[in-house]
Amino acid sequence: MVPIAWYLILSAILFCIGVAAFLIKRNIISVFMSIELMLNAVNLTFVAFAQQWHQVSGQIFVFFVMVVAAAEAAVGLAIIIAVFRARNTLNVDQVDLMKL
């Protein structure tokens, strides 16, 4: 028997580690991975609340988040490849201009 609050605190910790990694990491792929970590933390919150109120809709939300995350990962990684071709670097500090 585990209180739902513990699951929520676990997901809060994961989300905050994701926020810290998003701000601190300088590699564009690592930044993108920390976004995935934040999405996963929010998914855990949705599932925990679905258990709390015995509702299916929380899990439906997670399903749609997963679908959007898959699409986002495909497009985002394609953009990263395009940026690397144009700039020859993955450091976010050197990709701060829209112009070449």
Binding site: V67, V68, A70, A71, E72, A74, V75, L77, A78, I79, I81, A82
Partner: peptide, 14 residues
């Protein structure tokens, strides 16, 4: 449809 567009976008970008 969203996933289809994402696939096309990924192919076009990469």
């Amino acid at each position: 449809v969203l996933i289809l567009i994402a696939i096309l976008g990924a192919v076009a970008l990469a």
